[in-house]
Simulated assay, not measured.
Amino acid sequence: MRKILPFLVIGILVLAGLGAGALQIDNEKLELKKIESITPAKEERDFTHTVLAEFGTTSSCPHCPPVSGYLYDIQGSGEYDFYFITLNADKETLANARYWEIPGASGSVPQVFFDGGYSTLIGNQGSKTPYISKIVQAGARTVPDIDLNVAVDWLGDAEIEVTVGVTNNEGSSYSGHLHAYITEIVSRWYDNSGNKYHYSMIGYAFNQNINVGAGNTWSDTVIWDGDSHPPYGNIQEDNIMVIVSIFNPSNKYLDETAAATPGGGGTNNPPETPDIDGTTNGNAGTKYTYTFNSVDPDGDDVYYYIKWDDGHTEVWDGPHASGTNVNIDHTYTKEGTFTIEAKAKDIYGEESAWGTLTVTMPRTKSISNTFLVNILKQISQVFPIFNKILNL
C-alpha cells in the first residue's frame, strides 16, 4: 500500500495539471474568436473622397433628434472621412431650398442624403449602423481626381473670409458646382427633444459653377458678412465651420468635400486630460463602475470617448457638465490586463489628450485547486501521515 500511494498522489497531480492546461487553452481559443469578430475591415476606411451627408429636419419633427445624434457621434468619432450638414428647413430659407434641390427629396423628415443624393435614408433607422453603412458605401464611389482646399479667416464683427482652391489632377478639364456652406457648429436652433442641432447651415459663401483645366487650379476668395444676412450678425468665431463641397453638374452627386474653421486668435481651449477612477483588480464577469472627469477651461460641456481595451468603446458619450463625475458601468468577460483609455471633447470639437487606467481581471484556478484539496483531504483522513506532509 505504501508503494501505491505515491503513484496515486502523482497521478492526481498530473490529471489536475492537464485539466488546468486544457481550460487555459480553451480560454485562449475563445479570446481569439472574439478578437476576430470585432476587428473592423481595414478597407472600409480607404475612402476615395470625403463623404458628405445633408440632414433634412425641422424643429417639430419627433423622429429627428436620434438621427441628429447618430450623425454627430459618427463624425465626432473620427473613424470615417465624413462631414454632415443640418438643413433646418423650417428655420433657414436657403437650407429649405437646398433640401428640395437634392435628388430624391421626398418632403419627409428626417431624411439624410449621402453624397448629394447618391443614396438616402428616410426616418429614424434606430441605430448608427445603417448610417455608417451608407457612409462606407458612398466612400467607395469612383470620383474624379481633384483636390479641394479651404481656408477661413475671422475678420471680426461677424465677418469671415473664405478662400477655396480646386486642383484638377485629371487629363481633361473638370466642371463642377461649388457649395461653401457656412454652418454653426452648435446651432441656435433646437430639436424636438430640446437639444441643439449641430452644423446647421446659415448661408453660402460660394454657390456657383466652376471649370478647371487639366492640371490647373481654380481659386477665389469671398467675404461673408453676418450683418448682411440677418439674423446672423451675432455669430461667434469659435462656433463657425465652413464645409465646402463640389458636385457633378450632371448627376448632382458629390465629387469632394473639405472643411475648415476660422484660424488666428481663437480663444477656445481643449478640455483637460480625463481622470479615470474605479476598480483596478476584479473578477471577469462582474460589472464595475468607472468614473470619468474632465474639466474644460472655458466651462464648456464635454463628451467622452472611451476605449475599454476589450473591443468595446463608448463613442462620445455626453454631453456632460465640465468637471462633473460621469459614471459608466462595464463588464470584462474574460481574464487579463486591460488599459482603459478616455479622452474628452468640448462642444466645439476641441479634444483632450488620452487619460489611462490599467485594470486586471486575474486568472483563477480555484476550481481545479479546490477539487485537488478536497481529494487530498479525503486521503489524509484515511492516512493521517498526509496531514504532516501536506499541512492540511
Rank of each mutant, 00 (worst) to 15 (best):
P6Q: 05
I4V: 14
K196A: 10
K128H: 09
A258E: 01
P362E: 03
I385R: 00
V222T: 13
I10C: 15
S175V: 14
F206L: 12
V359M: 08
K252Y: 12
P230A: 13
K3G: 05
A180K: 02
E28Q: 09
V295E: 00
G117S: 02
S77V: 08
V112N: 01
T280R: 15
G203Q: 12
A89S: 09
I240K: 02
G126I: 03
F84E: 10
N88S: 13
G282I: 00
A260E: 04
H63T: 02
I306P: 01
M361S: 01
N216W: 07
G21P: 08
H320N: 00
S59I: 09
P362K: 07
L372Q: 09
G226E: 01
N239F: 01
V14R: 03
L23R: 05
Q111V: 01
T273Y: 11
A205E: 03
A344K: 04
V186Q: 15
P144F: 14
N96Y: 15
Q24T: 10
M361C: 04
V244H: 00
G264M: 09
T333Q: 06
N327T: 12
I340V: 12
D346N: 10
P231Y: 08
E350M: 01
P230E: 05
N387R: 11
G21D: 13
I367W: 07
I74D: 02
Y80S: 11
I38V: 14
E350K: 07
D238E: 08
T331L: 01
G278N: 10
D227W: 15
A97L: 14
Y304Q: 00
K42F: 13
V242E: 01
I12Y: 07
C64P: 01
D157G: 08
I235T: 13
S173F: 08
I389V: 10
Y80G: 15
G123S: 08
V212I: 08
D296I: 04
Y204I: 13
D296P: 06
S322E: 06
N387F: 12
L148Y: 05
Y70F: 15
D301R: 06
V109K: 02
I4M: 14
G126R: 03
Y348N: 03
S77K: 10
A158T: 11
Q236P: 00
E256F: 02
D227A: 12
Y290R: 07
E272A: 11
G266T: 05
P319W: 05
Y174N: 02
N293S: 14
I223K: 15
Y305W: 14
N281Y: 00
Y197K: 05
I132A: 06
K128A: 08
C64I: 06
T86E: 14
T217V: 06
R2T: 11
V9C: 14
V109R: 02
I122T: 15
Y99D: 14
G117N: 08
M201N: 14
A53R: 04
W354E: 10
T93S: 07
G171R: 14
H179M: 05
W189T: 10
D73V: 15
T289W: 00
A140C: 03
Y332K: 04
K29V: 10
L148M: 09
G203I: 11
N88P: 07
N149A: 10
D191G: 12
E256V: 03
D225M: 04
E256Y: 01
